[in-house]
């Protein structure tokens, strides 16, 4: 398969994730859509690594996975804290940053 097809799939998944971030209101699902975008970037990185025949892109993809894991941990911690304080789990109603 040509590398271009992988890049097309990556672009499609990235756009789906970006649209999901705009459409959905549950912060959990927004985090999932962020995961989609990060994974699309990972696919592009691995495809470029294959294109150039060097392992640097794969290293970058692994680092992106680490950053995504950190982001998920902190994001889920924030969501659990929001739920504990009896606030609505909805990004449209959580528009104030005041405690």
């Amino acid at each position: 398969m040509d590398i271009g097809w992988y890049l097309a799939v990556s672009a499609l998944v990235f756009c789906t994730g970006a649209g999901g971030v705009l459409v959905r209101r549950n912060p959990l699902v927004i985090l999932l859509c962020l995961e989609l975008m990060l994974n699309a970037a990972n696919l592009a990185l691995v495809a470029f690594a294959r294109m150039h025949g060097s392992g640097d892109g794969q290293i970058f993809a692994l680092i992106v996975m680490v950053v995504a894991a950190c982001e998920v941990t902190i994001g889920l911690g924030v969501i659990v804290a929001i739920h504990r304080r009896r606030l609505p789990v909805d990004v449209d109603e959580l528009r104030e940053l005041r405690g």
Partner: peptide, 14 residues
């Protein structure tokens, strides 16, 4: 190289 299969495969890549 977008329209190609990529670099020639070397043993141990990835």
């Amino acid at each position: 190289a977008i329209d190609a299969q990529g670099a020639p495969y070397e043993a141990g890549f990835g």
